[in-house]
């Protein structure tokens, strides 16, 4: 094996997720995808080491969610123990700076708390490392330079080269996480270290409420006359759900479909 093919050190930052329907704690989807990516990298570059890192309070609920990551096949998770409502960024930055890995992988956004997706950027800014978002795959790592595929909308991909050490964030385009197995999750170790924590005062001042349903924007009809507006409104009513065109020619049918495709803007 060539020397540049040597394994790298990868740290995966994971958070406690929240199921969108029931709100139960779980492994966060994007973080789990990040870990999946790291495990794939470990396979691709033998000798790589994957470390799991989480900063937050230790509770039964959190622990079971964190063990969800361990069930993907890791032995330990480093837990930087902090009080609820603390700012995780300084603790994580300090921990990463003390023993810098070559690659830090994190999900784009957390499923709890502010969930602003700032964490990777804040770490990159503090550590002075380059950051790539929307990662889909790591193609290769050679001579301290990683070749990555970044996900663009509609399944498109962009190839990037980034100098390590770097932070990458993954979203839903990264490979889906493998199943978490009960046995390894139960056996694995949570290595907890208490760290000093600053409370996130700003967050505490904000008002948090369960998300309201956003009002659906009415279709604004750019019609010049009342008649056109009326026509547009009437056409919408008749074109609403469950319209069935029977006994029309193929062209008429195709026209109706084309109209819908144009309205939805999926034709490019």
């Amino acid at each position: 094996m060539r020397p540049e093919q040597q394994g790298i050190e990868v740290a995966v930052l994971v958070s406690v997720g929240r199921h969108p329907i029931t709100g139960r704690a779980r492994r966060a989807d994007q973080d789990a995808r990040g870990l999946e990516l790291a495990l794939g990298l470990e396979r691709q570059l033998p000798g790589s080491r994957v470390g799991l890192l989480h900063a937050g309070p230790r509770s039964e609920e959190n622990e079971s969610a964190l063990r969800g990551y361990l069930g993907m096949g890791l032995d330990t998770l480093t837990l930087l123990e902090q009080a609820e409502g603390s700012d995780a960024i300084p603790a994580l930055a300090e921990h990463l700076a003390a023993a810098p890995p070559q690659l830090v992988i994190t999900g784009a956004r957390a499923e709890r708390g502010e969930g602003s997706g700032l964490l990777p950027y804040a770490l990159a800014e503090r550590l002075g490392w380059p950051l790539v978002n929307g990662l889909a795959a790591v193609e290769k790592v050679e001579n301290g330079v990683a070749t990555l595929l970044q996900a663009l909308p509609r399944g498109q991909r962009r190839r990037l080269k980034v100098r390590l050490p770097a932070i990458v964030s993954v979203d839903a385009a990264a490979p889906a996480a493998r199943q978490s197995a009960f046995g390894p999750a139960r056996r694995a170790e949570l290595a907890a270290t208490p760290v000093p924590a600053e409370p996130d005062r700003e967050l505490a001042e904000w008002q948090l409420a369960p998300a309201r349903k956003r009002p659906k924007r009415l279709k604004i009809v750019k019609a010049a006359s009342a008649r056109d507006r009326f026509k547009a409104a009437a056409a919408k009513a008749e074109g609403g759900s469950g319209q069935v065109l029977e006994g029309v020619s193929a062209e008429q049918g195709a026209e109706a479909i084309l109209k819908l495709l144009n309205e939805e803007g999926v034709l490019r």
């Binding site: 199921h19 139960r24 069930g71 993907m72 493998r178 199943q179 197995a181 009960f182 046995g183 390894p184």
Partner: peptide
């Protein structure tokens, strides 16, 4: 032990848990 329930298996089990 292995987390290798094929196809939709993992998803169904995750749903059951959540």
């Amino acid at each position: 032990e292995r987390g290798q329930t094929p196809n939709k298996g993992a998803e169904v089990l995750d749903n059951l848990i959540a």
